[in-house]
Design a binder for these strands. Structure first.
Length: 943
RNA sequence: GCGGGGGUGGCCGAGCCAGGUCAAAGGCGCCAGACUCAAGAUCUGGUCCCUCAGGGGUUCGGGGGUUCAAAUCCCCUCCCCCGCACCA
C-alpha cells in the first residue's frame, strides 16, 4: 500500500508543536513524590556549525531521541534539548577565505547547497553560524527529534560566554587550571600551533625528542643529535655535511656548533642563541673532537646523508649498530679522492673499527655491518638503509641488552636504559634536548613547521592523580552502553596528560583573568548540559548577559551564597534565581549522553573530568552511550569520496521515518552503521506492510484457546526484550523484536487458526506502541487509525507480565513446528505425496525416563531401572537413557500434554499437507514407527 | 609503534562474557510454489555438500592447544576500524 509519508510527517510534526509535547518543565516541587517525578535529562553533543548536519549526526542523535521517547512513554518527565557549537577556528577560517575571495572555498559552499546569493554573506563568521543554525533546526525538526527548542543556544552567545567564564574561574579556584610549558608543532608564519587539519603535508606527524650529545672541539661543542643516546658508547666518528653551513653560537653560556638551520629552532625551544661565526661543514672535516661522555677523541668526517635541516645537522657515527654510518664509512673507504679533498689521511679511516655495545638475541656482533654487507649496500644514499635501520632498531630496542663497555649501564635492557641515561647525561651537563618534527610538516600557509616550546599557556591539569581518582570513581558507578566501551574510558583516563585549554585565535570565550587567551573548543563543551536548564529562562526573558555574574552561577548551580545578596548584586529577581536553581536541581544530573566512539578519547572523558571537578556526586552523570561511525554502502562517509549524505538529502529521499528506521536498524553498540540504500528500501516496504496490517486488522473476538495463550506469551516476552534493548540503546535488536520477530509470531498464529482472538488486535496495537520511538510519525498515524485519541508520543509504554509467559504452550507449539518440519523433510526426501499421516506418541515409560534425566545425570541408569514400568523395557530403556545422557530435548511436555497438542493440531497438520492425520499411542501399536517415537519427537509414518 | 574495538554462511548481522539444545536467530538478496488478467505487495517453502524416512559430512580470518564436547576458553599469527592531543 502506498503511504503518503510526507503528509503524515508534516501532520504530526505540526500536532506535536501545537501540543508542545516535547517542552518539558519541572513538575512543581510539592507534587514530586517519587522517582518518575524527577526529570530525565538526555543529551546529544551539540554539532559544530561549519556545515549541514549529516547522517552521522542523525545516527547518534537518533539513539538519544529513541531513548528519550521510550522514557517519555514510560512516564518519565524527559528533557531533550539541543544547542549549537561555534567555538574554534574552522568557521573563522571559512569566513576569512571567503573574504579573500578563495575560489575553492566558494566552490565547496556552492556544492554544499548554499545559494550563490548567500555566499557573499559568509564573510561574517557570525552569519555562518546563524545560517547553519537555521538549517540544522529545520533538519532536526523534519526528522522528528523530540526537542525542547526553548532551550537552544550557541556557544558564542554572550550568556554562554558568562557561563564559561564562571566555569573556568571555578576550575582555577579548585586548582585544576595552571600555567604550563609544552612543545608543539608550530608554524612560524601563522605564529600558532599547527593542528592536523591545518596541514598541507604531514598529517598525523608529531614531534620527537632528539638528544644532543656534546663533542668538544676547541672549547666549543659539536652537538650531535641522536634518537639513540645509548649508542654514545660505540661512537667511532662524527658526521657533518661538508656542503652545509654550520655556525658557532653561544647558547646558555656555552659555545655550540650546529647547523645554521638549527638556530631558529633552538630559539623557539627556549634557548638563548647568539651566532658568532658561520662556515661550511667541510672546514671541520679531519679534525678530532672529544666524546664528552667517554673522554676519547674521534675524527670528524664528511657524509652526505646528513641533513642540515634536521635537528642539529650533526650526527654521531655508530657503525656497529647504525646502517647509515657503516654504509658511509664503506663509501669513504672506496673513495680516496674525497678523503684527499678534505685532507683526511686514509690511516684515519683504517683505524675506524665498529664498536659493538648492544647484545641482541638473533643479531650478530655488529648488526649494522652484517645487514649492510649482506644486502650489498655500497652507497650511503641507498633507499634500503632506512628499512635496515628500522629493523635493527626495533629488535635492539625490544630485545637488546647493553654490554660491559657501557659502564654502569651494562646489563640493562635498551628499552629501560633510555630514560635513565638521558636524565643522567643532562644532569651531568653532557647532553641537551632538542625537539624536531618526526617528518616534514607544512602548514596550510605553505610554511615549513618547526617545534616550539609554548610557554605560559593555560592547561587543564588532567594528569592530576587525585582528579583522575575521582573520575575513576564516577566511572565505576556509571552505566556505559555498550559495556565494551568501558575499557576505552579507563585507558583514556590513565593516559590523559595536561591539556592546553586555550588558544589565541578563533571564536570563543576569553579567559576572564587573562583575556588574550580564548577557551579552546574541547574545553568549553564539558558541562554545558547544565546550561540548558537556565537557557529556557535566559531566552524567555531575554536576560542581559552582564547580569550573569559568577555569583549567579554559584548560587544556581552550587547553592552557594545568599539569595538576597545575589539578587541585588546581579539585578536578577529572587524569583528568577530560585526558579533557575530549582530547574537545575530538577534536571540534573545528566541521565544519558550519547556520542560517537571517536570522542571517548577526549570530549566524553573531559565531560566526566569537569563534572567531578565542579559538582558533588549527586550531580555526576549516570549513563554514557557510545556508537560507531557511519558508513555508506560499506565505505567510510566523506566529502572527498563523494558519498557524503546530509540529513536534508536523506529526508528528501526517504522521509523521516524511513531514515530513522534505516539508521536505527543499521547498527548498535560499537559497530559502525552502514547505510545501504537497498536495506533501507526493504525497511520502507516493511513499514508499508505494517500500515496495511494495522489498517486491515481482521475482526477478533474474546477467545482464550491455547494458541491465544501462546501468542500472549510471545507478546509479553517480546515486550520484555524490546524494552530492555531500548533501554540499553540496542535499537537494532529492539526493532528485531518488535517488528520482525513479533510479526513472525503473528504469522504463525494466523497460520494456526482462522478465527482470531482479541490477542491478535492487542499484539498489533502493542507493536505500534513499541515501534513509536523509532518511527513516531507513522505510529501516530496508525494510532489514530486504530481509533485512539491521545498522542502516542505520550501514551503509556506496554508493560510485560511474566505470569503470561507460558512454557507449556510454547513447548507445544515448538513441538508442532519441529514436527511439521520433519514431515516436510520426509516428504521431500522421499518425494512422496502423503495420503495419510500417522503420528505415534512415545510410550509412557519414555516420559518417565526423560523426567529422571532432567533431574540429573548422576546414576541415571540405575535410578531409571528402579522404576518398574521402565524396567519392563530394560534393553530399550538403557539405549534411550544413554541417548539422553548425551543430549536433552530443549523443552519438556508430559505424555498427556503431547497427545493433547497433537490431537488438537491434527487438523492444522492435515491442512499443511493436504491430507489426513491420525494420532496414535505407541503403546497400542506394533508399527515400526511406534518404536522410534520419543517424547517431543513423535514417530511419523507417511502412507 | 602504543591504547581500544572487531573479523561468523551471497551480503548485513545475532551468538560468544556464563563451552553442549549451533549448520548457527533475524533482515536483505536469490530460487520455487500459492494468490493475481498481469505486475507489485502478501503468504508458504528452499538457499554449505550428500541423502528416495525425519539422517550424515565439512564450516564460524589462519595455525596450534585445553576438553567427552569450541563460533564460544587459552597461546601464536594475519587483516579491518577508532584514537594517539592543543583539533572539531
Amino acid at each position: 500500500m502506498e503511504v503518503d509519508w510526507n503528509h503524515i510527517e508534516v501532520k504530526w510534526q505540526r500536532r506535536w508543536a501545537e501540543c508542545r509535547v516535547f517542552e518539558a518543565d519541572p513538575i512543581p516541587r510539592d507534587k514530586r513524590t517519587g522517582k518518575k517525578e524527577k526529570g530525565l535529562l538526555i543529551t546529544f553533543p551539540y554539532p559544530y556549525l561549519n556545515g549541514r548536519l549529516h547522517l552521522g549526526h542523525a545516527f547518534t542523535c537518533l539513539k538519544a531521541d529513541i531513548y528519550a521517547r521510550v522514557k517519555r512513554m514510560q512516564g518519565f518527565n524527559v528533557l531533550f534539548p539541543f544547542a549549537f557549537h561555534a567555538t574554534g577556528e574552522p568557521i573563522v577560517g571559512v569566513a576569512e577565505r571567503i573574504r579573500k575571495g578563495d575560489k575553492d572555498q566558494i566552490k565547496i559552499l556552492v556544492k554544499g547547497g548554499i545559494p550563490e546569493s548567500e555566499v557573499e554573506k559568509f564573510k561574517d563568521p557570525r552569519y555562518i553560524v546563524e545560517y547553519y543554525r537555521r538549517e540544522a533546526i529545520e533538519d532536526v525538526t523534519r526528522i522528528g527529534f523530540s526537542i525542547d527548542w526553548r532551550r537552544q543556544f550557541t556557544t558564542i552567545d554572550p550568556p554562554y560566554n558568562r557561563f564559561i567564564e564562571w566555569q573556568y574561574l571555578r576550575l582555577r579556584e579548585l586548582g585544576y587550571v595552571s600555567l604550563g610549558t609544552h612543545p608543539v608543532i608550530w608554524c612560524p608564519n601563522c605564529e600558532s600551533p599547527t593542528g592536523d587539519h591545518d596541514r598541507l603535508v604531514g598529517e598525523g606527524v608529531s614531534y620527537v625528542e632528539f638528544i644532543l650529545l656534546k663533542f668538544e672541539l676547541n672549547g666549543a661543542f659539536l652537538m650531535a643529535a641522536t634518537l639513540r643516546p645509548e649508542t654514545v658508547f660505540g661512537v667511532t666518528n662524527i658526521w657533518v655535511n661538508p656542503d652545509a653551513t654550520y655556525v658557532r653560537v653561544k647558547c646558555n653560556n656555552e659555545f655550540w656548533i650546529v647547523s645554521e638551520d638549527a638556530v631558529s629552532k633552538l630559539r623557539a625551544q627556549r634557548k638563548q642563541v647568539e651566532v658568532f661565526e658561520s662556515f661550511k661543514g667541510g672546514s671541520l672535516i679531519g679534525k678530532l673532537c672529544k666524546n664528552v661522555v667517554l673522554g676519547n677523541k674521534v675524527p670528524i668526517l664528511p657524509a652526505f646523508f646528513v641533513d642540515p635541516s634536521n635537528a642539529s645537522g650533526i650526527v654521531m657515527s655508530v657503525p656497529s649498530h647504525a646502517p647509515y654510518d657503516w654504509a658511509a664509512i664503506k663509501e669513504l673507504k672506496s673513495n680516496p679522492a674525497l678523503l684527499e679533498k678534505y685532507n683526511v689521511s686514509t690511516n684515519m679511516l683504517e683505524e675506524l673499527k665498529p664498536i659493538s655495545l648492544i647484545k641482541t638475541d638473533g643479531l650478530g656482533e655488529h648488526p649494522a655491518v652484517e645487514a649492510v654487507d649482506s644486502v650489498g649496500v655500497t652507497s650511503q644514499l641507498d633507499q634500503r638503509l632506512e628499512e635496515l635501520t628500522k629493523e635493527i632498531y626495533k629488535k635492539e630496542f625490544h630485545k637488546g641488552v647493553l654490554k660491559e663497555n657501557t659502564g654502569k649501564y651494562s646489563g640493562m635492557p635498551v628499552r629501560s636504559v633510555k630514560r635513565v641515561l638521558i636524565d643522567d647525561l643532562i644532569a651531568e651537563n653532557k647532553a641537551s634536548v632538542m625537539y624536531e618534527c618526526a617528518d616534514t610538516v607544512i602548514c596550510r600557509c605553505n610554511t615549513k613547521c618547526i617545534v616550539k616550546i609554548l610557554e605560559n599557556q593555560w592547561f587543564l591539569r588532567y594528569s592530576d592523580p587525585e582528579w583522575k581518582e575521582k573520575v575513576y570513581r564516577l566511572l565505576r558507578t556509571m552505566m556505559i552502553l555498550p559495556e565494551e566501551a568501558r575499557s576505552a574510558f579507563e585507558s583514556t583516563i590513565e593516559w590523559l596528560e595536561d591539556k592546553a585549554c586555550v588558544r589565541k585565535t578563533g571564536l570563543g570565550t576569553r579567559l576572564p583573568w587573562d583575556p588574550e587567551w580564548i577557551v579552546e573548543t574541547l574545553s568549553d563543551s564539558t558541562i554545558y548540559m547544565a546550561f540548558y536548564t537556565l537557557a529556557k529562562y535566559l531566552n524567555a526573558f531575554n536576560v542581559d548577559a552582564s547580569k550573569l555574574t559568577p555569583e549567579v552561577f554559584n548560587y544556581v548551580f552550587l547553592g552557594k551564597g545568599n539569595l538576597e545578596e545575589v539578587a541585588s548584586k546581579s539585578g536578577l529577581s529572587e524569583e528568577l534565581l530560585e526558579a533557575m536553581k530549582d530547574e537545575f536541581e530538577y534536571w540534573y544530573p545528566v541521565e544519558l549522553r550519547v556520542s560517537a566512539k571517536e570522542l571517548i578519547f577526549n570530549h566524553l572523558t573531559f565531560f566526566l573530568f569537569h563534572h567531578v571537578a565542579i559538582w558533588p556526586e549527586d550531580k555526576w552523570p549516570r549513563k554514557i552511550g557510545v556508537n560507531g561511525m557511519i558508513r555508506v554502502e560499506g565505505e567510510k562517509m566523506s566529502k572527498s569520496k563523494g558519498n557524503f549524505i546530509t540529513m536534508r538529502e536523506a529526508l528528501s529521499k526517504y522521509g523521516a521515518d524511513v531514515t530513522r528506521i534505516g539508521l536505527a536498524y543499521a547498527a548498535e553498540g560499537l559497530n559502525d552503521p552502514d547505510w545501504r540504500d537497498k536495506e533501507v528500501q526493504g525497511l520502507k516496504k516493511r513499514l508499508e506492510a505494517l500500515y496495511e496490517l494495522v489498517v486491515n486488522i481482521p475482526p477478533t473476538k474474546p477467545l482464550d484457546r491455547e494458541i491465544d495463550r501462546w501468542l500472549r506469551s510471545r507478546l509479553h516476552r517480546r515486550i520484555k526484550a524490546a524494552t530492555e534493548n531500548y533501554e540499553s540503546l540496542k535499537t537494532r535488536s529492539a526493532i528485531q523484536e518488535c517488528l520482525f520477530n513479533l510479526w513472525n509470531d503473528l504469522r504463525w498464529y494466523m497460520r494456526r487458526t482462522s478465527s482470531y482472538g482479541d490477542i491478535l488486535r492487542e499484539t498489533v496495537r502493542t507493536m505500534v506502541l513499541l515501534l513509536a520511538p523509532v518511527v513516531p510519525h507513522l505510529c501516530e498515524e496508525l494510532w489514530e487509525k486504530m481509533g485512539e485519541k491521545n498522542l502516542i508520543a505520550t501514551e503509556k509504554w506496554p508493560e510485560y507480565d511474566e505470569k503470561y509467559f507460558d512454557e507449556v504452550v510454547e513447548g507445544k507449539e515448538a513441538l508442532l513446528e519441529n514436527l511439521v518440519n520433519d514431515i516436510r523433510e520426509i516428504v521431500s526426501v522421499t518425494g512422496r505425496k502423503p495420503k495419510r499421516i500417522l503420528l505415534f506418541v512415545a510410550p509412557r515409560w519414555k516420559y518417565r525416563v526423560l523426567e529422571e534425566a532432567i533431574r540429573g545425570k548422576e546414576g541415571l541408569i540405575k535410578r531409571v531401572m528402579q522404576i518398574p514400568e521402565v524396567k519392563a523395557y530394560s534393553k530399550e530403556a538403557v539405549k534411550y537413557t544413554e541417548k539422553l545422557m548425551k543430549e536433552l530435548p530443549p523443552v519438556f511436555l508430559t505424555q498427556e500434554e503431547e497427545i493433547d497438542a497433537l490431537r488438537s493440531a491434527s487438523l492444522f497438520i492435515g491442512r499443511e499437507f493436504d491430507t489426513e492425520v491420525e494420532v496414535l499411542l505407541a503403546e497400542e501399536s506394533m508399527h515400526e514407527k511406534a518404536k522410534v517415537a520419543e517424547p517431543l519427537k513423535p514417530g511419523i509414518y507417511i502412507e
